[in-house]
Design a protein around this nucleic acid. Structure first.
Length: 602
RNA sequence: GCCGAGGUAGCUCAGUCGGUAGAGCAGCUGAUUCGUAAUCAGCAGGUCGUGGGUUCAAGUCCCAUCCUCGGCUCCA
């Protein structure tokens, strides 16, 4: 096989393979450029990633964004030199010695990690100097550096050697590269578009939510955002109750015993907010005394275990489906917080289904129908993944066989294509993950279905079966939106803030052309309000053009413009956010239209 | 938490070498009564994230701290 074609089989398509090769090769070019600028730079790894590449570099000086143009310039020179990529097989010991002599300790560590007798090296000889850049690399690469013209460096950040916080902190330089100038431009344009849709920009702009430094990681939902939140949560609750769920509210603060039982205290303690029950003033040695330790729940499942366990249960009751939108707190690392997508306080459309093993397939099949319906209503598509038993799992193989079989069966019944991620399940059970795609084609993890054999055991849960003996129920953890916070963030970006009428916090804005139409405008406003429309009235004495412009900025779906013509005819002049001027409509017809579009489509 | 960048009026941003804090939009007041994406004028708005320090003098320099942002999964 040609050197440049090695590894083709691992990719889905020629296109994907070529992009990988291009990206990985450009990472080498960047490494060479950086080494020209900082000869003592220690190279770590430089893989291709989705849409680009990065290279991790150990360097005492910091590389800042201002250095990127210098690096790019150097890279352009290397591209122009059109150096070949030449593969060589080296004896591992020889390679280790070479890299050690050149101060490349990470490469030495990598070679030791492989444990192979030989390693492959890629050389980039330069015609202009004796300088030969070489790097430990599995390959493959494009034939020459001249193949990597359309790149751009994007950002620098920190990253740990081998993703381990106890190891050296390296500097990671990210870049992107494409086969053609057009593709590069398109990608950069997409980045710009995504920036414009960023929920952290649009959210405050549209008065949906705000953040404050005194509540890091927790959102303030302002009236318009609260309306969206409430629309989604109320509808979801109704839908689930219609589908045989019971809806509950459960406590926020618990004795730590609950989490000792659930396992969170042992495995999740660093993410729990906890405190002593006794009354303490600042400076007291708070939790060292003998008072009880309380913790805020990070998940609802332990509460639902208590509810199930509070009564003697019969197989006739199963499945028991408990829905709970309880407020959850997780003490995420300060550096990981981000807008609404990574928060410390949130709510989920959470539910736990307690059932027997042979009910799993039916339950999951029903969920697939719900998930399909809901994401369809938002115009979003999704991909499905089945994650199977990992190596360090709990429970015997027979149980896993049955559970994985049940999930697979449910997926088949749903008719959805799905991919299997072998070994990617949780230690306590297999799961189904959903990648939801927004309007920009970006994937988000929202819905999830996870089987759990362990938690019911930890809580000693049982039900009496038809055979009059005790059985342990299986628990299905499931969410459709996932966290409302994250889901609304996804929606804001999906719609770019231009929500459909049924979700829009302000559906119609009535506006007057002049003072002369105040009275008729007021009537229209009242009529819409009486019909249950989310309507506001702009009776300011600004010019109509100004009002339209302002309203457009707030992405209100409909403007009802009221002037003297409308007063005489008893109509409204309607301007749609998406379709522009719709002309005159009878008031009743307009009300009907808006009310129709205000129906929640799931 | 760690590495890097940032924080100036409600928002977007300017502020040179350390020498009296600026603009546009938004807001308020007044005028204007107007037909589909910005009417005019005036006024007000600031402990420059917070706390220390250096200096005759700090938005600017130094230290600490908080928050926000880019990352810390993609394994040569």
């Amino acid at each position: 096989m040609e050197d440049h074609e090695k590894g083709r089989d691992a990719f889905e398509s020629d296109e994907a393979f070529k992009l990988h090769r291009l990206r990985h090769s450009t990472a080498h070019i960047m490494a060479q450029a950086i080494q020209r600028l900082w000869p003592h730079a220690k190279l770590a790894i430089g893989p291709s990633i989705e849409d680009g590449f990065y290279y991790d570099i150990g360097l005492p000086e910091t590389i800042s964004e201002e250095d990127l143009p210098r690096i790019e310039q150097q890279m352009k020179k290397i591209v122009k030199e059109n150096q070949p990529f030449e593969r060589e097989e080296w004896d591992a010991e020889t390679a280790k010695t070479w890299f050690a002599e050149h101060g490349q300790k990470y490469k030495v560590e990598l070679i030791e990690g492989f444990g192979d007798d030989t390693v492959s090296i890629y050389k980039n000889p330069s015609k202009k100097s004796d300088d030969v850049f070489l790097d430990l690399c599995r390959g493959p690469h494009v034939p020459r550096t001249g193949n990597c013209k359309h790149f751009k460096l994007l950002k620098v950040s920190g990253a740990y050697w081998r993703a381990d916080a106890t190891k050296d902190q390296l500097q990671r330089v990210y870049g992107t590269v494409w086969s053609t100038r057009e593709e590069l431009d398109q990608y950069l344009f997409r980045l710009e578009e995504a920036k414009k849709r960023d929920h952290r920009r649009i959210g405050p702009q549209l008065d949906l939510f705000m953040l404050h430094e005194w509540a890091p990681g927790s959102a303030f939902w302002l009236p318009k955002g609260e309306h969206i939140y409430n629309t989604l949560s109320t509808r979801m609750r109704g839908l689930l109750v219609d589908n045989g769920y019971m809806s509950v509210k459960t406590p926020l603060v618990f004795d730590k015993s609950l989490f000792e039982t659930s396992g969170h205290w042992a495995h999740y303690q660093e993410n729990l907010f906890h405190f002593a029950e006794g009354h303490h003033l600042e400076g007291d040695s708070d939790e060292e005394d003998d008072s009880r330790i309380l913790a805020m729940k990070p998940m609802n499942c332990p509460c639902h275990m208590l509810i199930f366990g509070a009564k003697k249960r019969s197989y006739r009751e199963l499945p028991i489906r408990i829905h709970d939108q309880g407020v959850l707190h997780r003490n995420e690392l300060s550096g990981t917080l981000s807008g609404l997508t990574r928060v410390r306080q949130f709510q989920q459309d959470d539910a736990h289904i307690f059932c027997s093993e042979d009910q799993i397939a039916d339950e999951v099949a029903d969920l697939m129908v719900l998930i399909d319906k809901i994401y369809g209503a938002f115009g979003m598509t999704f991909e499905v993944y089945l994650s199977t038993r990992p190596e360090d799992k709990l429970g015997d193989d027979a149980l896993w066989d049955q559970a994985e079989g049940a999930l697979a069966e449910a997926l088949k019944r749903s008719g959805k294509e799905y991919k299997v991620k072998e070994g990617d399940g949780a230690f306590y059970g297999p799961k189904i993950d959903f990648d939801v795609y927004d309007a920009l084609g970006r994937a988000h993890q929202c819905a999830t279905i996870q089987l759990d054999f362990q938690l019911p055991r930890r809580f000693n849960l049982s039900y009496v079966g038809a055979d009059n003996s005790a059985h342990t129920p299986v628990v299905i953890h499931r969410a459709i939106f996932g966290s409302f916070e994250r889901f609304i963030a996804v929606l804001i970006e999906h719609y770019a803030g231009a929500f459909p009428v049924w979700l829009a916090p302000e559906q119609v804005r009535v506006m007057t052309v002049s003072e002369k139409s105040l009275e008729h405008g007021s009537k229209v406003y009242e009529a819409l309000k009486a019909a249950g429309v989310q309507v506001t009235f702009d009776d300011s004495d600004n010019k109509i053009g100004y009002k339209i412009r302002e309203c457009h900025g707030k992405k209100v779906p409909y403007m009802a413009i009221i002037g003297e013509k409308e007063l005489e005819a008893g109509t409204v002049s309607v301007r749609s956010r998406d379709e522009g001027d719709l002309g005159s409509l009878a008031l009743e017809a307009f009300v009907l239209r808006v009310a129709g579009e205000a129906q929640i489509p799931f």
